[in-house]
Structure formats: structure tokens, C-alpha cells
Simulated scan of single mutants.
Amino acid sequence: KKYGTGNGYSLGVPENWAAYEDIAEFFTNTPIDGKKVYGHTDFGKKSPSLGWRFTDSWLSIAGAGDTGLPNGTPVDEWGIRIENRSPVGSSVERGGATNSPAAIYALQSYIDWLNKYSPPSAKQGTFRDNNIAAAQSNVAQQMFLYTLWINEPAYQQGKMINEKGEPVWRLAPTPHGRYWKQGMKVGYQDAGSWTIPKNTRGPKRAAAWLWAQFCVSKSAAVAKFKAGGTPVRHSTLSSDFVQKNKSRWGGLIEFYQSDAIHLWTDTGLNVPHYPLLFRAWWPNLDRAINGQISAKEAMNNIAYEQDKIMGSLKLARYSPKLNPKRTQAYWLAQPGSPKPAQAREKPSTLSYDTAIKRWRKAPQ
């Protein structure tokens, strides 16, 4: 009631970043049972995981790229523009979006929320620290969670569960930034597969194939899911054990049995050289988070460095062919991404039941 009175809409699952921010501010400034709580948490320590936070999905959640699955066409979630299957630019001046208003907004929001609404230790934490810290019963929400952490003991004990041993926390659809449009990817998920090297021959190859079959067999897959919480088979999700105990995973089973799984995708082949390009991200993000440079300067640095790296790449197929530079105004006036600056969206929330129904009916 107090939240609704002060904000003009009901407290619920935030549908967009404006509502997420309002909720973060409310909880950060409202003691619960006389105790300090935080409306958000994330991490800021200089490490590769800081880069993953952004290349995995932060820009796509903000809406920096284009519509089209799996990664956005012609501009993907890294802000790289693809034409005729070849990368043609990362900077706005070349038709990319890595330093677009949407990307700068994404980083500035990250910095603001980390400073205003997160526990003091968050800026010194890595992605593991952050995900465990979110299970200390003093954080109201998190923008997105790597789901492997929910099988950590911290999520299955103390104030994180009720008297029946069921979680009091819930997984819900990711809120969108103001630039996000229907038809864009929503988030990130790894999708692995078994790889047997070409030089593994004869009996060794047969043994490797047999072992792989065992590891993804129905019985082994259920046992692995009980231990690790990462499913590899649909049959695991529909097994008697999982269906009887699905409340233990706080919404994860509902997610994986919904249409929404197709909207969470991994990094695509549109990133021409992941290791080289990735190096541009986390050092610049760290400098922005620590106030050494602005969010705009950081995203400019990343965009121009990616352009430089792509311009030097010579690949066997689909080698980058950089667009000539144009003014940012030219590209921001074109349809799609990069997108011109937009005003703050109207905050919107959903009931949890409605949010889960959105998963089930997610457009393909």
C-alpha cells in the first residue's frame, strides 16, 4: 500500500527499467522489519566477469540492438552491425550501436543502480560474489541471475526458504530497458554441446561417444539436475521428481517449459573474434564504474576499439568489411538500431501470475 500510494501503481514484477528503478529506490529507502535492505545488487570489480555482464545481455535488455532472433538483425547485442553476413561496424558512425544512446543509457543505469541501490560491497564483487550476496535476505530484486546459482546452499536455507523448505524468492521475466521492442532477444543463456575432437579415432572415439550418451541419458540427466540445477533434456523437466518438487526452483521449471526459452540466446557468430573483441569491454567498464571516465567515454572507447580490431581481421569467411564513417546524426535517423535518445518510459508492473503467463505465451 505504501508503495502504491507513493508511486501511483502497484508493487509487482517490474515490466520495464523505470519500474525496476522505482522499486529499487523504494526498498533501499524503506527499512523492512526495522532492518536495512537494498533494492538492487550487481557487481563492479575489474574482472572478465564484468565484461560478460554486458556482452551476455545488458545491452540487449536495454534494447540497444535490433529485432530478430537469435541476436538481432542487422545490429546485434554487442552493437555490431552485420551486412551480407560480414561485420561492418561497431560505432554509430559506421552503423553500429556500441556507443549509441541506448548503450550509454545501459551503462549509466548500471553505474547509477550500483551506487544508489546496491550493498556497499557490491562494487568490489565479481559475478559469483554478487549472486551469492543476493541470497542474504536483504536484497529485494536483481536484474538478471545466472540460474546455476540457485542450487547454491545460500538460496536453499535460512530466511530464503519458508517452514516447508520452499523458496520465498521467485524467478520472473527480465524487465526491459526503454529502447527494447517486441521481437528482440530478452536475455542470455549458454547452450552447450558435446565435442569430440577430430583426431580422436578408433576405440577412443567409440568410448567418448558411449560416455557422452551416458551423461545425457534420462537417468543421469535427472541426477545431474538435482545436483546442479541446469537441465539438458526436456524429459528431465517433465520427470516425476521435478514436477513434484518444481517449487524448489522458484520458477525455473516454468521458464524452461515455456515458449520464452527461445528469447534467451547465446552470443552469435556475428561476433567475428570473441577473445580479441572482448578485451575492449571490461577494462573500460571498470574505469566508468570507478568514475575515471564517463559512461559515454567508455562506450566510445569500446566501439572504436572494436572497429579497429575488426578492421584488422582477415578471416577465411565473412571477414569484416567496415562501412565508411558517416555522422552519428545520419545513422540515428535511419530505421532500427542505432536508435536516437528516448525519454524515460512509464513505469509498469505485473502480478507474478501474469508474468509467468507471459513466459508461457512468449511470441516466437
Rank of each mutant, 00 (worst) to 15 (best):
Y3R: 06
G6V: 02
Y9R: 02
P14V: 04
E15S: 09
A18E: 12
A18M: 05
A19G: 00
Y20E: 04
Y20S: 02
I23E: 05
F26A: 02
F26E: 00
F26R: 02
F26K: 03
N29Y: 00
N29G: 05
P31F: 04
I32S: 07
I32W: 13
K36L: 10
G44N: 07
K45D: 02
S47I: 13
R53E: 15
R53W: 12
F54C: 01
T55Y: 13
T55H: 10
L59H: 13
I61L: 12
G65A: 08
G68F: 09
P74W: 05
D76N: 14
W78G: 00
W78C: 00
I80L: 10
I80T: 08
I80M: 02
R81P: 04
G89P: 05
S91K: 04
G96M: 01
A97P: 03
T98D: 05
N99V: 03
N99G: 06
A103Y: 08
I104Y: 04
A106G: 02
Q108M: 06
I111K: 10
D112I: 00
D112F: 03
K116R: 12
F127S: 14
F127T: 08
F127H: 08
D129H: 07
N130D: 13
A134F: 15
A135S: 07
S137K: 11
F144H: 10
L145Q: 02
Y146C: 06
Y146F: 15
L148K: 15
I150R: 07
N151E: 07
N151Y: 09
Q156V: 11
Q157E: 12
N162L: 06
E163M: 11
E166M: 14
W169N: 01
A172D: 01
T174Q: 13
P175W: 04
H176Y: 10
Y179I: 09
W180I: 07
K181W: 06
Q182D: 15
G183P: 03
K185F: 08
A191R: 14
A191Y: 14
S193C: 11
K198H: 09
G202T: 08
G202S: 11
R205W: 01
R205V: 01
A208G: 10
L210T: 15
W211F: 14
K218T: 10
K224D: 11
F225T: 08
T230L: 13
P231D: 10
T236W: 09
T236A: 04
Q243M: 11
Q243N: 09
L252M: 12
Q257G: 12
I261H: 04
I261R: 12
I261S: 11
I261F: 02
H262D: 12
L263A: 14
W264M: 09
D266T: 11
L269N: 15
V271W: 02
P272G: 04
A280I: 00
W282R: 00
P283V: 00
P283W: 01
N284D: 01
L285H: 06
G291M: 06
A295I: 03
A298Q: 05
M299G: 01
N301K: 14
N301D: 11
K308G: 05
M310Q: 06
G311Q: 08
K314N: 09
A316C: 01
K321Y: 02
N323A: 11
R326S: 05
A329K: 15
Y330S: 09
A333P: 11
Q334G: 07
G336Q: 05
G336M: 12
K339G: 06
P340C: 01
A343W: 04
P347E: 09
L350A: 04
S351M: 00
S351T: 12
T354W: 03
T354R: 11
A355G: 03
I356K: 10
I356E: 00
R360K: 15
